[in-house]
Design a protein around this nucleic acid. Sequence first.
DNA 1: ATTACGCTTCGATCATGATCGAAATGTTCA
DNA 2: TGAACATTTCGATCATGATCGAAGCGTAAT
Lengths: 229, 229
Amino acid sequence: MQTIAPELADLAALIADPGRAGILTRLMDGRAQTASELARVAGITPQTASWHLAKLVERALLQVERRGPRRLYRLATPLVAQMLEGMMTVAAIDPHPSRPQPRIDAEMRRARTCYDHMAGELGVAVTEAMLERGYLELDREAGALTAAGTVFLGEFGIDLRSQPRHRRVLCRPCLDWSERRPHLAGRAGAALAALAFQRDWIRRRPQGRSVEITEAGLAAFRTLFGARI
Amino acid sequence: MQTIAPELADLAALIADPGRAGILTRLMDGRAQTASELARVAGITPQTASWHLAKLVERALLQVERRGPRRLYRLATPLVAQMLEGMMTVAAIDPHPSRPQPRIDAEMRRARTCYDHMAGELGVAVTEAMLERGYLELDREAGALTAAGTVFLGEFGIDLRSQPRHRRVLCRPCLDWSERRPHLAGRAGAALAALAFQRDWIRRRPQGRSVEITEAGLAAFRTLFGARI
DNA sequence: ATTACGCTTCGATCATGATCGAAATGTTCA
DNA sequence: TGAACATTTCGATCATGATCGAAGCGTAAT
């Protein structure tokens, strides 16, 4: 009867190590990283990282790609990212509300990517602005793009109607672990983030998952979207 | 920068023990269970279970309620259930496709509840039938109820329009770990499961999360929903 | 009050896996 | 071929936490 429980425990054990958790967190932006970089952010030696990475690949949480003498690691599927999202949401809940909240890096809280979409204050602000303007319907469980929203995104060249079978079902709420409020994920969220990178509204910082909002981006999010940020 | 990683590791460590994983799995149906029952399904002694349960409550994954000499444990929030859903989905992925799949209990695979909605073959079949009839739009990431779907559910007395702010956004896809296909979750999924229990289409089995499909239920799912089950 | 029962606490034992230095492997480039 | 560099493998050490018997505690019923 409990047939899935052992597999669940094994999977959790894989994430239960601080080193591996750091590696997975670093890979949450969906990009590939070298073994050395992952060792650095996890605060462990390359040997130890190598051992951890082998386990993660063995269990198919990560994919590895050889590029010359380096090896690039990335999350194996979006399913893994979604799982980590869910875990982070719970991990961010303080079991003892009286105690001081764990400090979250300011840049990280301001704006970051969550696999393929925008998160942090930026992600939440853009999402709430779109909600207020009636472009979006979203709660903690589900989301939908309205007709007005489809038109709005279409003006930026985002055409989500290309997939015939999926008309409105392009939104997914992703509960932001730093803001405790849902932000826009799913196909629409990914398209929006891609647009923001393309128009140089946001730029990836050289290290980490946090992104920088450019001056043009700040203006665009405020005037075009009405985001309070 | 990696500020969430240690919390993620701690959370995962809590799930990484087979005993605790068994307990959490057992509680996935959203109901409360006694400490003894949880010890039994996890295959551990009551002392050990008590120790595990204390840790899970301490970390706020579980809520405990005293009823007389017994203590009833339940998942603290739906967020925990959603997290476990996501983990089970990944846990069910076989990292080595060549090897034999882990055996899943037949009753469990046939029909079970996943926190507040139907899952297993039943959940998937009902979802697919609703998709085919155009009541639903759903992919792996998002879902929406169509106008026809709202009318259809309305005929069963399910009125999802009661919450003014949420019109169509009542569906959430939940990737079924035994079927590898999405089934209907979210508010609509919960309402549908409640209806099925109320009309005695499905009955909870005394032990475990699996449910029994009654003869009337089989007929209803087939004729009223067009489910191939 | 006493008994019965469910649950928890304590304490001793045991097993697992993370860690890093040292050395080996493998790849690219000159 | 040889040098430089990224990564992995090996081996020894170390730390953490799961386990259950025995005992204690709290609640409800007689």
